[in-house]
Design a protein around this nucleic acid. Structure first.
Lengths: 244, 244
DNA sequence: TCGATTTATTGTCAAGGTGACGATAACTAC
DNA sequence: GTAGTTATCGTCACCTTGACAATAAATCGA
């Protein structure tokens, strides 16, 4: 007998974004202060409803742009995962598709007083429970963090946190902030510069900083993530974070 | 000014499942023959609508059970990713949350003639274009395959393709089928048995097969995936698939 | 101007993991 | 029994990594 299809339930679908950046050696996440119920006044991930005829990543980018006042969001945006319609919003079943943005530190516009206010907060503050997030956003943040941490191991996405050009030390600071560990500068330098197809020397150097000037690198052409393709396993063998 | 929320669009939400298994050294995927339009008569991934009050993985498991006639689906089921409402179904915007099942080979009930018929097909047949899939299911399958391949590298999920107890050679056959490569039996044996916390010797042996009897192993307690937790990186350093 | 300090970069060395492959062990098939 | 097959144990050269010495090239402070 043909299956009797229940009336195809329709769900409100939102996109949320875990936007991460490294600022002054600290990993930060972009949060907004909610102006409407539920969780009014609480901190939450930026996000909003998907519009008809819109794609998921597109919606995520649009919401991010709207809520930060930044037109062109820099960095690498990818889908993280979906969080089931059941029991995550007191108003009813809402499906949310979480996204992950790895971005260089960009300033968010401190919007007018009655718009939702977006700002960067240290991730550690959330993990330690100093800051509480609305809905199931703490779990989403935890998943995003784990995704980011593992991506740094085998993909070139660590550079998404840096500007167009960066030093090895800046890249190392990214790894240290995301992983929450210290890495030996000499060994990191060897791995970063010694991995074929990862970094390209721009020929230029930093000036004005303390200490010896550092060479500026950019992501090698071959390591650029192809849109739609899975991020390539450029770091092979991977650059593993220290365990234990 | 407060953002003017457009009427929260609601979308039909489906779950699809890429169910993979290894049978006779060949990687297979579970496909159904569609009985209704669109793509009537074509092959597609099993799946269906999410019901109100249902979670995503739950829905995926339910649909799988319904369409195979198997009550308790074995193996490891996890979310793969979501595929945007835009332009993937000629009937309109439908959001689908794809899932991945890694399972030992289980027989699907050849249901009555007018139910959707589910069966295992070699993945290679789809990749080579011999079999065409409905909707964007070929892309979903490709993503699932990549996910499965990379999971075998660092997680213990290869054993999800095996029964409760298995030999090293059976596990190696899984790796070879999923990765599409040959692996040196001696080196694989060394890595599999030499990784602490991965496998447990049951003390029992195979009998009746050709060649020397093999020891039977099971997944070590410490490597069991905790539900809700990210699958653990038991294989550390990872067991990398050969590149090039 | 001259160390002192800071950071970048190049090496060195031992330990551990991997790929390639030899050698046995312990069965089944005939 | 003998041949064939598969499992398991070893060996060895090579590569990568972690720990750490040494040098290079700037800024900073007096």
């Amino acid at each position: 007998m043909p299956k009797s299809y229940p009336a195809p339930a329709r769900f409100p679908v939102t996109v949320d974004v875990v936007a991460l950046t490294v600022s002054e050696d600290v990993l930060n996440v972009l949060l907004i202060t909610r102006l409407i119920k539920p969780f009014r006044g609480a901190l939450a991930l930026p996000g909003g409803f998907v519009l008809a005829g819109e794609d998921l990543v597109t919606a995520a980018g649009r919401e991010l742009a709207e809520e930060t006042g930044v037109e062109q969001i820099p960095g690498h945006l990818e889908q993280l995962g979906s969080y089931g319609p059941k029991g995550r919003d007191p108003r009813g079943d809402v499906l949310t598709v979480a996204h992950l943005l790895l971005a260089p530190n960009f300033p968010v516009l401190s919007a007018g007083s009655d718009a939702e206010h977006a700002a960067w907060y240290p991730v550690s503050q959330v993990l330690e429970g100093v800051l509480k997030l609305a809905f199931d956003h703490e779990r989403i943040l935890a998943d995003a963090l784990e995704r980011a941490r593992s991506k740094l191991e085998y993909s070139p996405l660590g550079v998404a946190f840096c500007g167009e050009e960066f030093t090895i030390a800046q890249l190392r600071a990214v790894y240290e902030a995301v992983w929450g560990t210290r890495l030996d500068p000499r060994n990191f330098h060897r791995k970063a510069t010694g991995t074929p197809g990862f970094l390209e020397d721009t020929g230029r150097m930093t000036t004005g900083d303390a200490g010896r000037p550092a060479a500026l690198f950019r992501l090698a052409e071959a390591a650029r993530p192809l849109t739609g393709q899975p991020t390539r396993a450029v770091l092979n063998p991977p650059l593993m974070r220290p365990r234990d």
